[in-house]
């Protein structure tokens, strides 16, 4: 078990290293273009050369990578040429905002999708099951930007209940959080609910559930004690991996609602070629994704006695 955890962690480190190399090569392979991005299109070659010289860009690629990676690990993320401030200064608050968004999304997503998924899977083919299945196909079929459009048309322009943007210009406003959370929730809900349903439905057809029923246990106990424990192992992994998807979702949602989060930052940076911000954001995103995956894997083995004790 310890070995397994150690393995997972070393794989995580290797992945991060591989990704960072990839990222570095893609973005900083040619110093010339980096200089253009940083100094703007109208900088003269001379200006560029001076800048490159100053920042050590004439060193070989691998050497530059290690300097870059070293800086990264010490929190030296470079400077945003658009905002003219160190990247950290804009990144961390933005990340916090996204964390808030993600927290609320998950706070609704997990209970709703698990409960509905379990209910649907408990009695496969029942009315409730069919309804939940259809709702979940529908919601997973509507891209985030489209549900943002539909929901805005309804709640913002139609009913005038909610604000249409979530810039939070005059401080934190819970109302402004509702629309982004709702959109993210809707898109992910269907997927998690379907997975939970499938897992539950499969467990319900297993012989050990039959054993439990034919032991004369009350239905509640069959479900709570025998079915759920096995049926929730798969959704746990799915939910952990859903964080990865959330990182994609926030980009769209934050862009749509002008929410000042991490996703919007990454997008803006890409559109403006703000290279150090892109690098920092990408590394953070990958870190979050890989870390959750690691937790998911370790958690899976903990939940599953068949793997835990072998």
């Amino acid at each position: 078990m310890l070995i397994f955890i150690a393995k997972r962690f070393s794989f995580m480190v290797i992945t991060m290293a591989a990704v960072s190399i990839l990222l570095f090569v893609v973005l900083e392979f040619s110093p010339g273009s980096v200089a253009t991005k940083v100094l703007g299109q109208f900088a003269t070659d001379e200006q560029k050369n001076i800048w490159l010289e100053q920042h050590g860009y004439f060193d070989p690629l691998w050497q530059r990578y290690f300097v870059w990676a070293g800086n990264f690990l010490t929190g030296e993320l470079g400077e945003s040429h658009r905002f003219k401030v160190p990247v950290g200064e804009i990144l961390w608050p933005r990340l916090w905002n996204t964390a808030v968004l993600g927290f609320w999304t998950f706070a609704f997503l997990i209970p709703f999708s698990l409960v509905l998924g379990v209910l649907a899977g408990m009695r496969e083919g029942s009315k409730l099951d069919r309804t939940i299945s259809i709702i979940s196909v529908l919601t997973t079929s509507i891209p985030e930007f489209a549900s943002a459009v539909f929901l805005s048309a309804l709640f913002v322009f139609g009913l005038n209940w909610l604000p249409g943007t979530s810039g939070m210009i005059s401080g934190f406003d819970f109302k402004q959080l509702i629309m982004p959370v709702l959109v993210l929730f809707l898109y992910d809900f269907g997927y998690v609910a379907r997975m939970t349903r499938a897992s539950m439905a499969e467990v319900m057809t297993t012989p050990y559930i039959r054993t439990a029923v034919l032991k004369g246990l009350p239905y509640r106990q069959v479900i709570m004690k025998h079915a759920l424990r096995n049926a929730l192992i798969a959704p746990f992994t799915v939910i952990m991996l859903q964080l990865n998807w959330l990182l994609s979702g926030v980009i769209v949602v934050e862009f749509f609602f002008a929410y000042k989060g991490f996703g919007a930052l990454l997008l803006e940076a890409s559109l403006n070629q703000d290279i150090f911000v892109i690098e920092a954001c990408a590394m953070v995103a990958v870190f979050v994704a890989v870390a959750t995956q690691t937790i998911a894997d370790i958690g899976y083995t903990f939940l599953n006695p068949r793997i835990r004790f072998s």
Partner: peptide, 11 residues
């Protein structure tokens, strides 16, 4: 392990 959209955006 890359969040998909981040990957697309960078590429």
């Amino acid at each position: 392990s890359f969040p998909v959209l981040v990957l697309y955006i960078i590429v």
